[in-house]
Design a protein around this nucleic acid. Sequence first.
DNA 1: TTCGTATATTAACAATGTTCTATTAACGTT
DNA 2: AACGTTAATAGAACATTGTTAATATACGAA
Lengths: 213, 213
Amino acid sequence: MGPQDRRARERAQMRDSILNAARELFAIHGYEGVSMRKIAERIEYSPTAIYLHFADKETLFRELCMQDFRLLSTEFSALANVADPMQRLFGIGEAYVRFGTSHPFHYRLMFMTPPPVAKCDESPYDKDGKGNPETDAYAMLRWTVEEAIKAGAFRPEYTDAELLAQTLWAVVHGVTSMQISLGNDSWLAWRPLEQRTRAVLDAVMHGLARRKE
Amino acid sequence: MGPQDRRARERAQMRDSILNAARELFAIHGYEGVSMRKIAERIEYSPTAIYLHFADKETLFRELCMQDFRLLSTEFSALANVADPMQRLFGIGEAYVRFGTSHPFHYRLMFMTPPPVAKCDESPYDKDGKGNPETDAYAMLRWTVEEAIKAGAFRPEYTDAELLAQTLWAVVHGVTSMQISLGNDSWLAWRPLEQRTRAVLDAVMHGLARRKE
DNA sequence: TTCGTATATTAACAATGTTCTATTAACGTT
DNA sequence: AACGTTAATAGAACATTGTTAATATACGAA
């Protein structure tokens, strides 16, 4: 273990401390509410030091989001032991809304902001998205849908797993993003979030499911 | 018609020309992509002149959105002659997605951005939201839901019009906002927007509708 | 020791939303 | 017609932002 390794380790530590400082600040004040200078102040470095580790502010925050979004895949995995694929889909939906609404700023950047234009080159994930929690979560959803199709849980006219996955995703994304953006609006007599989540999932699952004979 | 009136008219014209300049620019470059200076340049006034008519940039853009969102209520009204309340709800959903995705920047500010904190005081609409296109559209949706309930179109366990309206809104909002934010992402094998819209609405409507005997 | 590279900082740039201050123009009153 | 008040407008300036350029420092390799 030469001095190279030590430098690499120090560099990684620096990276982490930036990410951690940024994580705390973003979680409180949101993306726009935190400046690079604030992050730098927190770790007691100059603002420019950050640019030695991250290309720009958005790259930094996206990296952060990626890290934290791994937790979502983890939560999905925890549902793997649910036998009934429809129940598993229901659980995935609930977990998704819960995760998104408790990480509103992460969710906002990941799924409510257009992705950066041509910066995908420097992404640490391959094209297929293996290891990318964003695409991983979607892949798990689609896989579960395929299982449900195979198990004959859907009505026979529903055969397009991709379309079904996108349908289910759109639905939970609707509840999640609406809660994040408008959940505190008082002109609306909002029903509790959990109730809305269940109502939406109930409706769509009933609509998709094969009728019991 | 004294000179007071003339001044008021001129003032209103100035306001409109600001709004029109802003409308064009925002429609092309989006909220963040248009600076107050650019708007001022377009109408050939100084940037400060704008502040005599609008408190700040966001107020200006919100006013713009409000104006344009009247078109949505109009489209909803055009569906009033659809007899079957379920079909009307379906049409409302389709119109909503169509409208939102063709006015992405408007939609983003109205429904994908947290509302400003305590600026509601200067809102030209009353607390109930009468005349406010945002709340008007929701009111129309809820009213249609109530009609559908009365007509016995929903399954008997669905009696909460508010919850049903919020369910339907969440669903179409999901499709709309997902299209706006991620519709151009290529890592996903997106089905066409119209297909997704129909699939989501089909599923949820089937799930909510009373079974035919 | 000397050289080069990685790391860090200071200063600065360009753009932004917004405000301060001064100036001009219009209008009603006398 | 002259005057004072008020609204409208502009120019300069401020504070903040993300980011880059130029520069210094530390440390391993030769």
